[in-house]
Computed example of a mutant assay.
Amino acid sequence: MNDGLPHDGAGPFHDTVRAMAEDIEIRADTGTLPAFATAPIGFALGSVANLFSAIGTIWIGLMMVMIVLDVIGRNFFNAPITGVAEIAGRSVVAIVFLQIAAAVMQGRLTRADFLIRRIGSASPGAARLLDSLFLLVGALVFALILWASWPNTIKAFETSEFFGVQGVFTIPTLPFRAITVLGCAVALLACLYRAAMTWRAPGGAA
């Protein structure tokens, strides 16, 4: 079948397409936890990150069910579920921070991977340095978020802060703020761990 495109043996076009495909290939770890005996720190961080990610995944499913029920109740029975919009809005942020550490541990943070691959083919050491710097900058960002979120979390605990309309629907803000703090803390540790392992040696364990 002739589809108008050159195939094997077409020369430069085929080589260019193959090179582009290799450049945009998304590189990520399998997500398998290292053995505790060989990498106790990685095992512990990976276990916590995977637990948080699993909670976030379950939360997404529950939120979807809640939204669907609210839409059905609103449109067919004129009986919307109170507080769905408020809970969904807060849940999105909480889910992100629950799952970000697993993304770090599994090497799935969004980045221009084609550039790293090009640099790595010429200088593996330079690619490792860029990977480490990328993770260190990520650690700095999470540290700043943690530093900014901590006072608000303490305040929410001391003042019993809530959101919603008093007398109609209210929910404490403390669980959501605590998730932000915990998620940032684990993501910060995950970035530092991955940076150290990347700089020491690809596939190193600790």
Rank of each mutant, 00 (worst) to 15 (best):
S121P: 00
A49C: 06
P6C: 12
P202C: 06
R108T: 00
E22K: 06
R194Q: 15
L130N: 06
V181Y: 02
V96C: 10
L182W: 11
S91D: 06
A10M: 01
P172M: 02
L174E: 00
T180Y: 11
G107N: 10
I100G: 04
F157S: 10
T110A: 15
P172Q: 09
G11R: 02
T110K: 15
G204S: 15
F36D: 04
G73E: 03
S91K: 01
V17P: 02
A21M: 13
K155D: 07
K155V: 01
D131P: 00
Q99C: 02
A44E: 05
L182H: 03
I41G: 02
L69S: 10
F36E: 11
V137Q: 06
S123V: 07
M197E: 12
T16Y: 04
I67T: 12
R18A: 13
N152M: 11
T110Y: 08
I87G: 05
G11T: 03
H7T: 14
A185K: 07
Y193N: 06
G46Y: 04
A122T: 09
V84E: 03
A205Q: 14
F52D: 05
E25R: 15
G167P: 13
L144M: 11
P34G: 06
K155P: 00
T110S: 14
V168N: 11
P175M: 02
P151W: 01
G31P: 02
S132L: 01
L146A: 13
G9S: 02
R118F: 05
G83A: 08
I58H: 12
I67Y: 00
A190I: 00
V168L: 10
I24F: 13
L129I: 10
M1G: 15
A49G: 12
A127F: 06
M105H: 05
L133D: 03
A148M: 08
A88R: 01
L146E: 04
G138L: 02
P34C: 12
A28V: 10
A112K: 05
R117S: 08
N50H: 14
L135R: 08
V84A: 07
A156S: 14
L5V: 13
S47H: 05
A94I: 09
E158Q: 15
G9H: 07
T30P: 06
F52R: 10
P172C: 06
D15F: 09
A35N: 14
T38K: 14
W199Y: 05
I58D: 09
L146T: 03
R194M: 10
M63R: 07
L62F: 14
L109D: 08
Q106L: 01
L69W: 11
N50Q: 14
G120T: 04
N2K: 10
A85D: 13
T198L: 03
G203P: 11
D8H: 14
G83D: 03
I119S: 04
G164E: 10
F162N: 13
E22L: 07
A205M: 15
L45N: 05
W150Y: 14
